[in-house]
């Protein structure tokens, strides 16, 4: 049975018990299992917290670790259709290599793949995916982390590598950018599993403009006019009053509005109520919540 949810400031800190984090992870997971809403409608969940810290990151993490991971095509299949010079993402020796595909040839009886300036034996290549449109500014080699306690506890260790290489901002976090970015260094985990803990950043992989593969986006709440919500985003997590002001204009299937109860003004709450009264259908989450909360004390969430 997996241990309790813990949080660590960074890899050197001692884990601190965080029973409060479980239901937030569970909320994200719950939404990831929801069937798609009808076209023209979306599900908005408003949740209040005594302090905003880490709530957005936890909800997004629960979602990301529950969303289905698509099995990658076999390397040989991909090789058949790859055009030379097209950008690719490749996993070899626990590294993610993003660069141009050069060639595939058999040298001395051994098949080799050349990507960018280097070559790999085919047998060492775990994954190869076309990355059409990937700009050269994102070409790099990145070491891939091992799956940690949280990932393992929800049975995602096997698909961890595939998830690390998948690219698409399926979830966006909207709030004070510097706060959210700083929180990416925190590590959520499960005690008692004897493995390390991945940071939020490793699990969510927010796009910072230079990553070769990303899984989320962090958008500054105050600049709605400038912000581009990725078209593939399915969940928007809105952290704070300014972010909640985006609700009217968002079109993601799911939105979670996080209301910080320690903030004096009621603007966030009022926006939600207004939205609700403009033609929303209230949905009861209670039963689902209780079940989820119970589950988070056990294995998985």
């Amino acid at each position: 049975m997996a241990g309790r949810v813990v949080l660590l400031d960074d890899e050197r800190s001692a884990p601190v018990n965080a029973p409060w984090a479980g239901p937030l992870l569970a909320l994200g997971a719950r939404l990831a299992r929801q069937p798609q809403p009808d076209p023209e409608s979306r599900l908005v969940v408003a949740v209040t917290v005594p302090t905003r810290d880490l709530a957005a990151a936890l909800i997004a993490t629960g979602w990301t670790l529950t969303r289905p991971v698509t099995a990658p095509p076999a390397v040989e299949e991909v090789l058949e259709t790859l055009q030379p010079s097209s950008p690719v993402r490749m996993v070899a020796s626990r590294e993610l290599v993003a660069d141009r595909f050069v060639s595939y040839e058999v040298v001395g009886g051994r098949p080799r793949v050349r990507v960018g300036a280097s070559g790999w034996l085919l047998e060492k290549v775990d994954m190869l995916l076309p990355a059409p449109g990937l700009p050269a500014t994102r070409f790099r080699r990145t070491g891939l982390t091992l799956p940690g306690s949280l990932v393992t506890s929800v049975d995602r260790a096997r698909t961890w590598l595939v998830a690390q290489v998948a690219c698409g901002a399926d979830v966006v976090l909207v709030g004070t950018k510097s706060c959210l970015a700083a929180e990416m260094a925190v590590r959520p985990g499960r005690g008692n599993l004897g493995v390390g803990h991945n940071s939020f950043g490793e699990i969510l992989r927010p796009d910072d403009g230079s990553r070769s593969a990303w899984g989320s986006a962090i958008l500054p709440a105050a600049r709605f006019e400038e912000a581009v919500v990725p078209p593939e985003a399915r969940l928007a997590v809105l952290d704070g009053s300014s972010a909640i002001g985006w609700l009217n204009d968002l079109t993601t299937d799911f939105s979670v509005a996080i209301i910080d109860r320690s903030v004096a003004d009621d603007f966030a709450a009022e926006s939600i109520i207004q939205l609700r009264s403009m033609g929303g259908t209230p949905v009861s989450l209670y039963r689902a919540w209780v079940a989820a909360a119970d589950r988070c004390r056990g294995a998985g969430f």
Binding site: D9, S13, V16, N17, A18, P19, W20, T51, E183, R261
Partner: peptide, 15 residues
């Protein structure tokens, strides 16, 4: 940034 135990304390106090 708020410390992990501070956050836990706040949730506990609220509850």
């Amino acid at each position: 940034m708020t410390g992990m135990s501070q956050i836990a304390d706040r949730y506990q106090a609220a509850e």
